[in-house]
Nucleic acid binder design. Structure first.
Lengths: 214, 214
DNA sequence: TGTACATCAGTGAACGCGCGTTCACTGATGTAC
DNA sequence: TGTACATCAGTGAACGCGCGTTCACTGATGTAC
């Protein structure tokens, strides 16, 4: 897939338009119009609109998962002698992989953050299944390490904290452009994606490490 | 609006279906089919599909904003003699108002959480404008109090932390049903909405209070 | 070297379908004189 | 008390439109004998 120039142009236009408006709100006619290719080319190269949505995600999640695994390997080597990796390095791993992966494919980094947000909110069951099949191993590996770094949390509390973290990250990064716009207008201060991630790491570390009083 | 039985049935069905599938993915035919009313009744009572979406939000956000204002008044009275309200009571205020409001209108509480999540992710500009016009004052009042309780954060850092909190809350609560399902299956432990909120308050308090090292 | 066939990327036009909205209409209830 | 008119909730059928998908087709390139 995506070996032809036409398929590449479709993937690029679909990425931009899906991130801007969502999946249902973007028609194949708009995509092929922007990509300057024939309407039927989407079904020729990808088979269906659903398959196109899948392909858009695979294109940027594959380098992300590879980068994350590479960094977790490095972290494993570093801590071979003395115990487990800590929370903060684990979060750095995650966000740095995101940044690196997003820069290997074309386009604005925050586009992919928006797509990630959409994947969660628009109930695309087919998408969730296909993503879990491809990236499930990496996901479970990361979860195991993170939980080991948070021994004060029982499994239930850990699971909820994980979702608090996912929510904060996905929501903030997928609204990144609009938050930045508001801050520029109100406080005349510019924050780039890297700044935002550096504000997020200590805040989320603090959240995860807070003791859980019942 | 919503004084007739037909309009009420439409509002109820729309609330259920929008929360399940999103706005674009729910057709007026599905809504009127479930409500057992005539298709044209939506446009007769509400004017358009967009106006129906607005009405669904107004119905549960209005009791929420009223309840929140009432609780903030009480908090103001309590702290009249000694300083400002603290972070944790402010979060309790917010979440308790949500719970109370959601129980005054019919239906499962988590439905409204899902709608809130959708309002953020589906780019419904008309909706955001209309909501800010109606609830802007309450929103700004709450923000001011919360910032006063967090004097260690400069405006920029505060703003980002606010979005981390919003993200964690909206995302978690709108995925509440599926998270609960996973926990039931994997750990055989049931968590209701109240439990989830009580796990959230200390975690988010910890996140907000964490110092921001640069 | 020449011919026949297969493969493949891409195209133009049409398919049927479900969508939100509109419109002329009905029938019940309220109001004015 | 009776009649004429206005208002209002609700209806049935149709409107035009944009959607994802399909299909027969073209033209270029590669392969076999």
């Amino acid at each position: 897939m995506a070996q032809s120039e036409t398929a590449d142009k479709i993937l690029h236009a679909a990425t931009v338009l899906f991130a801007e408006r969502g999946f249902t709100e973007t028609s194949l006619r708009t995509i092929t119009g922007m990509a300057d290719v024939n309407l039927a080319a989407v079904n020729y190269h990808f088979g269906s609109k659903k398959a196109l949505i899948n392909a858009v995600f695979l294109r940027f999640l594959t380098p992300f998962a590879e980068e994350l695994n590479r960094r977790l390997d490095m972290l494993d080597d570093d801590t071979d002698v003395g115990g487990m990796p800590a929370v903060e390095p684990l979060l750095h791993c995650l966000f740095s992989s995101l940044l690196v992966a997003v820069n290997t494919v074309d386009g604005e980094p925050q586009r992919f953050m928006r797509l990630l947000g959409l994947a969660y909110s628009q109930s695309q069951e087919h998408l969730r299944h296909s993503l879990l099949a491809v990236y499930g191993d990496t996901y479970r590996r990361y979860l195991k390490l993170l939980h080991e770094a948070l021994p004060h949390l029982d499994p239930i509390a850990f699971y909820w904290r994980l979702y608090f973290m996912l929510g904060a990250a996905v929501f903030t990064l997928s609204s990144f452009d609009s938050i930045r716009g508001i801050l520029n207008a109100d406080y005349d201060a510019d924050t780039d994606l890297n700044d935002a991630l550096h504000l997020m790491v200590p805040a989320l570390t603090g959240m995860l490490q807070t003791p859980n009083e019942h």
